[in-house]
Design a protein around this nucleic acid. Structure first.
Length: 494
RNA sequence: GACCGGCUAGCUCAGGUGGUAGAGCAUCUGCCUUUUAAGCAGAGGGUCCUGGGUUCGAGUCCCAGGCCGGUCACCA
């Protein structure tokens, strides 16, 4: 690489040497800051022109702009809190130090000490009495007013995106606030946060294809978890009554604006309640998060108004199919439903159970139409092997999916706690698996044993945290709420 | 996986019908002690994504491939 250094990088390396020659370490060990940009702007906003702070401040940050004027020059430095202008001149620094000061590049990280004053144009500015190079930057930053636009580069080199596009940092700060707010919400209600295994011996807890890995010492395959569900229910068996886990799950599926192969799930389990208990909890928690971020319950997402005022509408799956898909399957036979599916252009599901056909109908015809927060309820039993039968109709289960802006945000059940029923469901899944369904649940004998000891009536709900953050920060793609979304390597791996 | 679009200097982008590759910012040199897209004068900087093909000649046309984005498909 060293032979191919382009001019910009070569020049920066030469400057690095120049700093060394002058006795200034280009990569020193520490700097004692006394202030940050934002605080100084606040504190000295009322300073009069010509007035100067009594104190000498020490700030540090990255050089973002430079405006040289011969024997004096302005620059802005940026720290985590924002930007502040600095003003260095030869009279104060002396000829030698000022020469070095002029050599600073955009992107260099420096520490600056001096009094604070206000310029003619009324800008709070640090008058540099001493500056220290804290880190020489060897790679040029993107251009100062277009910034970094190329989406691919923004995702691949997120560190640059964060330096030059301040809005990006705001999105991730909000993400952090949302997660922290959720923790507080749940802890305030007596839930405890737990951690369960990510490396699993078998797949379970959701319908998804797992990533497979291998444990050398044990000489056995291991799967990256697709959901923590079955472990969390074991904890309820063990006597915890309110638990949640906030963590990463991994699904070996396609990538889209709402899918990343690894994403953050929030699963909550509460003993002695049912689907309707967690439905209420879901409404309260999401509404609280929306309010915390926006101060109100009506927000804009991709130019569309979304109103989180509770209660949200509840629509049985069959009704939703009729209303949004123009498909009436009430009282229809399997053959009739399959025919209907075919007439809607849904093919290739002849071998698959009727429940799945209905699910596909729903995904194709309904989900995209659900814009306002909606609970879809009463799912067919075949596709929900971990949910309790509907108390009024044994062909359905007690389950909801919460949909906003056409995206599934949450999925919840009255948890199935009858071990005999659960065994039968697993057996049906095993048949599907044998028939080639990679997403079918595995027979989990240990989980069944746990249920035999006794799982109290329990309501459980899982959230797609990334999608919730998308909604609350008005970001169009899941990639925009992940620091490092999955990208293909530029060169194919050997 | 299918279709559409993009890929040109460090960054943001221009480059009819094929004829030695351009601008702004950034960089370098000189001038400049309150500027903020600082200014003025000059200079350097390119695997035009990759590989083939057509052609006297390809950034441009054709074929294949790569990566990204979008739409669809897949996907609780």
């Amino acid at each position: 690489m060293s032979e191919e250094l382009n001019e910009l990088i070569r020049v920066r390396r030469e400057k690095l040497e120049a700093f060394r020659q002058a006795g200034m370490d280009p990569f020193p060990y520490k700097f004692d800051k006394t202030a940050c940009a934002f605080d100084l702007l606040e504190k000295y906003g009322d300073l009069k022109e010509g007035e100067e702070s009594a104190e000498t401040v020490a700030v540090a940050g990255r050089v973002m702009t430079k405006r040289g004027h011969g024997k004096a020059s302005f620059a802005h430095i940026q720290d985590e809190s924002g930007k502040i202008q600095i003003y260095g001149k030869q009279d104060i620094l002396g000829e030698n130090a000022y020469k070095l000061y002029q050599k600073l590049d955009m992107g260099d990280i420096i520490g600056v000490e001096g009094k604070v004053f206000k310029t003619k144009t009324n800008e709070v500015t640090v008058k540099v009495e001493k500056f220290t190079l804290l880190c020489k930057s060897l790679h040029p930053l993107p251009e100062k007013w277009h910034g970094l636009q190329d989406k691919e580069l923004r995702y691949r080199e997120r560190y640059v995106d964060l330096i030059v596009n301040p809005d990006v940092k705001e999105v991730f700060k909000k993400r952090s606030q949302i997660v922290s707010m959720i923790r507080r919400f749940l802890e305030d209600r007596g839930f405890i946060e737990v951690e369960t295994p990510i490396l699993n011996v078998m797949q379970g807890g959701a319908a998804a294809t797992p990533f497979e890995s291998y444990h050398d010492a044990l000489d056995m395959p291991l799967f990256m978890r697709i959901a923590p569900e079955l472990y969390l229910k074991r904890l309820i068996v063990g006597g915890f009554e309110k638990v949640f886990e906030l963590g990463r799950v991994f699904r070996n599926e396609g990538i889209s604006y709402k899918h990343n192969p690894e994403y953050t799930i929030l699963e909550i389990y509460q003993a002695y309640t049912d689907l309707y208990g967690v439905m209420k909890l879901t409404e309260e928690m999401v509404a609280a998060a929306v309010k915390a971020v926006h101060g109100k319950l009506k927000i804009t997402f991709k130019g569309e108004e979304i109103d989180f005022t509770t209660p949200w509408q509840r629509i049985p799956l069959v009704e939703a199919l009729k209303k949004f898909g123009g498909v009436d399957i009430a009282g229809k036979s399997e053959d009739e439903i399959r025919k209907t599916a075919k007439s809607k252009g849904i093919e290739g599901y002849e071998e698959i159970g009727i429940g799945k056909v209905i699910n596909v109908l729903y995904d194709k015809l309904v989900e995209g139409h659900l814009r306002q927060p909606t609970f879809i309820v009463d799912y067919p039993i075949e596709t929900s092997p971990l949910a309790k039968k509907n108390r009024d109709n044994p062909r359905l289960v007690e389950r909801f999916e919460m949909i906003v802006a056409g995206m599934e945000i949450a999925n919840a059940f009255s948890e199935l706690n009858d071990p005999i029923d659960q065994r039968e469901r697993f057996e049906k899944q095993a048949e599907l698996k044998a028939a080639g369904d990679q997403e079918a649940e595995s027979m989990d004998e240990d989980f069944l044993r746990a249920l035999e000891y006794g799982l109290p009536p329990t309501g459980g709900v899982g959230f797609g945290v990334d999608r919730l953050v998308m909604l609350l920060t008005d970001q169009p793609s899941i990639r925009d709420v992940l620091f490092f979304p999955h990208m293909r390597p530029i060169k194919p791996l050997e």
